[in-house]
Amino acid sequence: MRSKLSHALHAAAVIGLSLCSPLAGAQAPLLSVDYETGTPDSGVANLTLSNASAVDAEFVTTDLRRCPSRFAIGHKVVLDDPAYVSDGAPRSEAASNRAANGTYRPGDHRRYTVSVLLKDWEDWNQVSAPLDIVWQFKHVGGGPDFSIGVKRNALVLRYGASGQVTLIDDIRPYDNRWIDLRMDVRWSRANDGYFSADVRLDGETDYTRKADLRGLATFDPRFAGEFGYLKWGLYRADSRSANGDARIRVAYHDDISAVALP
């Protein structure tokens, strides 16, 4: 059941959805996934799609579109249903590991943007506190260098062995509304890398800085892999229906880009 707060704010959310947010920067991106082809691969050669077998685990949608875009990608995960299992876990994700300019390595300096919408997102049950991941900078041969997901009723960014910052304290007012994320990263194995994260909520014209982490190894030296890549969708590794966690989750994504910085 959605909370009374979600229902009370639903009308305001619908109004907000009618507003078109400006798209990120004019600079030509190294990688652009905007789904304007109306296909799950967005016309990007070798984009990796979900391995979940359910027909609605990954789908192109025109529902709640992010203006002026016509299409977005939706990912759905249903707990306890093998049709929504991909690579041994309850998840459905797209990835840039095989796409041209879809990877990152130490020394790269990049700006990344992505827009996320949490579709009919059930509120935290106040019992267990899993992390439902909607974005990863995935390091091959190991875990994510950074990940973004919903924990309790907050959108959080995790990094390193135990680092965490809060991007949005309470996501409930933004149920079914687009959230724009912008991330600048200097990738490094040594302690001279940096990472910043900005958030722009529905109806806002400017980004707000939420994280500025400097003097750290952004390309996590705990992992042996030589490169990383982008993943987006839903990954629900620690959600359990037995704990009362929402059985069905759906997330939309749009306008994924990677731009080279000086």
Rank of each mutant, 00 (worst) to 15 (best):
D180E: 12
F223G: 08
F223M: 13
Y194E: 05
D192T: 00
R209K: 13
A190V: 09
A237Y: 11
T205W: 02
R172G: 07
G215A: 02
F227C: 09
E226S: 15
R189T: 15
A224Y: 03
A211I: 01
A211M: 14
W187Q: 10
G215R: 01
M183W: 04
I171P: 08
R209T: 09
A211L: 11
R236C: 14
D206C: 02
A237V: 15
L201M: 07
D238R: 13
D192S: 04
Y229F: 14
R214W: 02
D180G: 08
N176R: 12
L230Q: 13
E204F: 09
R177W: 00
L181P: 07
E204A: 15
V185M: 12
W232A: 14
R236N: 13
P221G: 08
S196F: 01
N176V: 05
D238I: 06
G203A: 04
S196L: 02
K210A: 10
G225C: 01
R222E: 08
N176E: 06
Y174I: 11
G225L: 03
A197W: 02
R214K: 15
T218H: 09
N191S: 13
G203W: 08
D180I: 09
E204L: 01
Y207C: 00
R222L: 10
W178I: 09
G233M: 09
Y194H: 11
D180Q: 11
K231V: 02
D192H: 07
L213G: 02
G233A: 10
D238T: 15
Y207M: 04
D238A: 10
T208L: 05
G228L: 15
F223Y: 15
D238E: 15
L201K: 11
Y207A: 01
V199T: 04
I179H: 12
Y235D: 10
A190S: 11
D169N: 12
A190P: 01
V199L: 02
D220V: 03
W232Y: 13
R177K: 04
D198P: 00
D212G: 02
R172K: 15
T208P: 00
D180W: 08
G193D: 03
N176C: 01
T218Q: 06
D192Q: 07
T208D: 04
D198E: 14
T218L: 04
R189M: 09
F195A: 13
W187R: 05
V199K: 06
Y235A: 15
L213D: 05
D170Y: 11
P221N: 05
T218N: 12
W232R: 14
G203Y: 02
L234H: 04
W232T: 09
G233E: 03
L230V: 10
V185P: 06
W178K: 03
A237Q: 14
E226M: 05
R236G: 11
G215N: 02
D175G: 05
G225K: 08
G228H: 11
M183F: 00
F195G: 10
R222T: 13
L230I: 13
R172H: 14
R214A: 10
G233I: 07
